[in-house]
Structure formats: C-alpha cells, structure tokens
Design a protein around this nucleic acid. Sequence first.
RNA 1: GUGAGUGUGGCCAAGUGGUCUAAGGCGCCAGGUUGUGGCCCUGGAGAUCGAGGGUUCAAAUCCCUUCACUCACCCCA
Length: 422
Amino acid sequence: MSGFRAPRGTQDILPEEQPLWHYVRKKAEEICCNYGYGRIDTPVFEATGLFTRGVGQETDIVEKEMYTFNDRSGGSFTLRPEGTAPVCRAYIEHGMNSLPQPVRLYYLAPAFRYERPQAGRMRQHHQFGFEVIGDGSALVDAEVIRLAWRFFELLGLSRLSIVLNSIGCRQCRPVYLEKLKSFYEKNTDKLCPDCRVRLEKNPLRLLDCKQDKCQPLAMEAPGSVKHLCPDCLSHFELLEKYLAIAGIDYQISHRLVRGLDYYTRTVFEVLPEDKGSQSTLGGGGRYDGLIQEIGGRPAPAMGFAAGIERIILNLNRQGISVPALPRPDVLLAYTDGETRDEALAVSEGLGSSGIGSVLGREGSSLKSQLRQANNLGMKLAVIIGSDELREGRAVVRDLQKGTQETVSRKDLGLVLTASLNI
RNA sequence: GUGAGUGUGGCCAAGUGGUCUAAGGCGCCAGGUUGUGGCCCUGGAGAUCGAGGGUUCAAAUCCCUUCACUCACCCCA
C-alpha cells in the first residue's frame, strides 16, 4: 500500500457504486421537478461568518467541526458544513425575495464536518436538500414533510417513520426553556455528567440524551408542544391537519430537538426501522429567523436535508436493486496493424450511429481480446481480420449464444442494432 | 475529544519465535499449434507481513511507540 490515501472520513466512489448514486440523484431531481423546485448549486466554500452567524455559535458544528482556512487574501472561509445557510445567502444575494413567493430550491452537494468517522458518518458526505423560502404557512411545513416522505417512498425504502415536534418561537421558547430547566434542576442528582453541562449550555439537548439514567427523566420532562404560544400552537395544529389530509403518518416526540440553532416551530426527522447509531436518514424544520440573521429582509422558511450515504446504506440493507448504467455491448477485435486501423474507423462509425464499442487491447491475440470481451460482459464481439478487411466484411459473434455470422461491413450498424434491440 | 477492536499481494485469507527470501482461493495476464471468449489444465506478474524502534543467535509471529481502518460515545445527514 503506497503513501497516499483518501483523507480520513472521505471516500472514493468507484464505478461499481455509481449506479446507486445515480439512482438516488435521479429520483431526487425527478421528484423535485414534480413539486416545482429549482436546482441550486452554491460554492463548496463560503465566508466563515455565514455559518457562525447562521448555524449558531453554540452548535457543535461551529464549535468544533468546521473546515476553516484563510486564503491568500487573508479572508476566512469554511467548507460548507450544511446546505441551508448557503442557499439562504444565495436567496438574499440574488434578490429572490422579489420573485413570486415562496421560492422553492433544492440541492445535491457535498458537506464537510471534522468528526470521527463511523458507520453512516463521514467527514465529507453528500446531502440532498430542499428549502421553501418566503412563506410561513403550515401548508409549506406539510409540503416539505410530504416531499421528504414521498422521496423515500420513490426510492423504494420501506419501514421508515417520521418523528415530529414543535420547539416554538422566540416568544414561547424562552418560557418553555425555563420550565424545562426548573424541572431538571430539581433532579440534577439523577443526571449523567454530560447532562449537567447541557443544563447550563443547551437545555433542549437534555431531552435526547441516550444515557440510561437520563431516560426516565427525559420521558417525564415537560414537552414543548404543551407550552407553545397561541400562534405556534395553531401553526402546529394546522400542520397536523394537513398531514392527515395528505395521508402521512408520524409520531410526535417532545424529545426531538435538532442541533442547529436556527430552527423555529416545526422540526422533524425521518428514521429507519432498525435505528442504530447515526441512523437518521434526514431531518429538517422551519427556520423563520435565519434569513434576517444573515442580513436579508425577514423571510420565513422551511427545509429538509438527507444524507445520501445513509440512504445508500439503507437501500443496501433493504436489498433494493437499482438499474445498471448504460455501457457498450460491443468489443471490436482485430488481428494486426491494418485491421486495427479499420477497427478504429469502424468504432467511430458505430459511435456516430449511437452504438457504443470498445477496442480490443493493442498487442493482444484474438483469443485474448475475446477473453477481454467476455470479462467486460460484452454481448457481442465484432472481429475484423485480414480476410474480412480484404472482403469488406466483419464477423459478428454473439458471446451469449456462442454463434457468429459474417456480414458486410456496410451493414454492420444495422446488424448490431438488430442484435442489440436498440 | 473519549473508548474498544483490527491491520499479511487488488480482494479474501493460512501462518502465533527458526522448515516463511510467506500457503491457498478470487481476480488479473499469458499459453494449451493453424485468426475465436466463457469450463478445464499449465504458467506468470504481484507482499520490504501498516510504519518505526526494541528483545533474541533467529520475529509476520514477543515488547514499546506510532499511523491507519472499523465500531461505539459525543453530535449529526
């Protein structure tokens, strides 16, 4: 094993894995187009401040996971750790608030976080996400959840579930957090060490602690839904109604909180049945304050992002097979320099009529070229030897049936098209 | 950042102090007469046994260090 390897937490996606990747991306684009979303691609790095302000100074992402560097101008930049803030930046930068609202955008892009890799967690991973900006209606919340759900359905994944919660807004959340803190303060002796820190720093996180000793407390702790202000409550009730109409099942969990500071009101996740660690397939929520936070005119928004690596993990676990990618079915074999030149010309000719082909390896015997054809899984081999060259013919060998015929080279395109059912 | 496990040719893998200048399988390459694959047969290429140091007459095999990978915690997609 020689010196260089892919950096820790990154991976090469080899040709044999590409059909899965292609499948997921294609389904994502398909469904987004149907729901009226336009694709957006943003730079792989952004000004660091976009994330420290947008995602939140207190989050793990900003505190310890960002790939930040200075370029030669001295400016500080960061490899995108998540997709929402950049999309919002683009929305503001391009004046999309003067487009008909809401604006619907989706993206397929890599994201980078400095973490210890493990199953389903990479330093470079890939997200499929979509955002609806400029409409605060619960109808939009329902739309994002529907789209997320229908996407997984379209992929063929089954036995997934949606977990839903509302964590309130600037008005009601502080009140709720006080309630939560006072509940936990009465029970500090029953908390794990981590949770004692959380109590001060980020009380919401107390709720999703996985330590056994914290479980009972988290179950009993006051839920945010019971402490929503009237506006947030009616928003949440409307969302439930819309989801019911759409026929989407979900469970409400007051223990669902998400790690990014920008969420308001609705938060949700999509989980597979066999919840291991790092199992969340995707998550999202409403972020009504983000656009303003990063310098835009206030605009409500709602979005979702899924991890493509985790999707593929689950496609594999559920044994879902995906279509193969197109590939040539013909190998052109030859026997010497002159026939090689002719084979090259034939390959070009076939290519221009839409028939892909691969030339046999230079210097290989005919036997060896046919072996190559077999190893490559070719359906047909076309053999041009000196006899064929002289007579204006070619041998078309069917590698599956083991039969062959000699045809005029003028007709080769037609013969191949017929045998390949193109 | 913390904890555990693993590390022998592209892949799987035997070997736990000398017979290892490392078995076997897959894959790859080539041959099995005259221009023809897939099965079979034969041959070939390919490993400083993750790296560095130590113990020993002798180490892939023991000790130390280090790196990487895997899994889990944390957190998230």
